[in-house]
Amino acid sequence: MRKLWFALLFLAGGFAHELRNPVQCQCISASAAAAPGRRRAQSRASTAEANT
């Protein structure tokens, strides 16, 4: 029973924190973040083929 109260207090504290300071998520889209790496990998492959 004591563990249940501690869990409820922990969740209530997290909820209160989110009310006071809400999360500000300004994420870059996954496709935009992955695209530059793919271009670099392709350009390296093409230059390696050109050098051989």
Rank of each mutant, 00 (worst) to 15 (best):
A7P: 01
N51I: 06
N21H: 14
Q24I: 06
A32W: 15
R40K: 02
R2A: 07
A34H: 10
H17Y: 13
K3A: 10
R38I: 03
A32T: 15
A33M: 04
T47D: 12
A41E: 11
G13F: 03
A30G: 02
R20F: 00
S43K: 05
S31Y: 12
C27K: 15
P36A: 03
S29C: 04
M1E: 12
A41Q: 07
A7K: 09
L9R: 11
C25N: 15
M1Q: 11
M1V: 09
F10M: 10
E18Q: 15
L11R: 05
R39Q: 09
A45M: 05
S43T: 11
L9G: 07
N51H: 02
Q42W: 06
R2G: 06
N21W: 14
R20D: 08
A30T: 06
S31G: 01
T47M: 09
Q26E: 14
F6L: 14
A48H: 00
R39D: 10
R38K: 06
A12F: 12
A50D: 12
L19H: 13
L11S: 07
A34I: 04
T52D: 10
R2V: 02
L4Q: 11
A35G: 02
F15D: 07
A41V: 04
A30I: 06
F15V: 13
R44P: 06
A12N: 03
W5S: 12
R40E: 12
Q24G: 03
L9A: 15
T52L: 05
